[in-house]
Design a protein around this nucleic acid. Sequence first.
DNA 1: GAGTTTAATGAATGACTATTCAGTATACTA
DNA 2: TAGTATACTGAATAGTCATTCATTAAACTC
Lengths: 196, 196
Amino acid sequence: MARISDGTKREAILDAAVVEIARHGYHQTTVAMIARRAGVADGTIYLYFSNKEEILFSLFERAMGRFISEGRTEVDQGASATEKLSRIVELHLTLVGRDRDLAIISQVELRHSLHFMDQLSRNQVGEYLAILGQVVVQGMEEGNFRADLDPVFAAKAIFGVLDEMATDWVLSRKNKRLESQAGSALDFLFGGLGVS
Amino acid sequence: MARISDGTKREAILDAAVVEIARHGYHQTTVAMIARRAGVADGTIYLYFSNKEEILFSLFERAMGRFISEGRTEVDQGASATEKLSRIVELHLTLVGRDRDLAIISQVELRHSLHFMDQLSRNQVGEYLAILGQVVVQGMEEGNFRADLDPVFAAKAIFGVLDEMATDWVLSRKNKRLESQAGSALDFLFGGLGVS
DNA sequence: GAGTTTAATGAATGACTATTCAGTATACTA
DNA sequence: TAGTATACTGAATAGTCATTCATTAAACTC
């Protein structure tokens, strides 16, 4: 029998969870529904996750892990801060826009509870904000961004704009591609950052 | 016996709900908990609300109603678009920052489900975005904002920044007043809008 | 291929809680 | 004050589901 450490069954469960939770919401999704879609028995879920909430956590870690690692790569490929920011914006919108189910999870379902949001904010989102903050600092040092910026605040503002765009896209039924607004977003953000 | 139409008991229930839901989250809050805090029997809740979810809806309507009406007043008091926007930003941060429990409800608990967010977005938040959009249009007509702005996009971006600030404040344990960042926010937003 | 270990199953359990409603209390009416 | 209408109560109901665990199946070992 396949070793539990293969990870393929675990992945299957997470994949199933994305679909079910995106479709019905976390609280309306039963463990049985996830098990059924993943093609395993209810009890099997508990061999891989200690409880239902851990599935949601794992879902997020998996998604955000990809997000951050790709983000770092993009940042490393840009030279100037403006270039790095362009890449981040493009990537953020592309990644969110790639998979609507996953977007629903990250824009809506993961924000269920204070406790949950707190976790996110302290860990993954915090890391993302830190990356943004570093780019802002670099831009200031290069003399391309306003000298009186507060990098921590600016990072939040940038994130706020991107996050609102993502949420809006998830809620709108239009099929307009999210990335298509990257230009407007950059114009706005560069303006806010004082890029001349 | 007091008439049901007095509304005082209904208000008491909503007040109790804000506290309990902010403290424990919507799903961990039982109807019995709300009833207990409001000083009424469990069954009494159902004389005023048809089910638990309607309490959450009503909570939101009550809060957002105040928000929008005060928002309109502020807008009407400003002459130029820049002045109006300053007032809106100040008001938004002040109102959110005034009551942490209510802020938790609006920044976290009300965003529970796609269905719920959809409602918000379509109605109250949509109205708020419309107000912001009008201000942007005015600013463009006055020649103070960039001419190539997309007002619908700009409204979302403004809202995104304010909303992220609010969420961050709710999650942070610091007691820094939210309004204290209004200046930074305005600098950023005016920059994004191309105010020279 | 007998024996052992590991993985998977799914029916049963147990706990929880939104909602109901028969009964009680309070206010109004004449 | 008797009678009626309205508001309130809280124990009982009814349904839901996360989680467990005794049993079965598969894989590995030598």
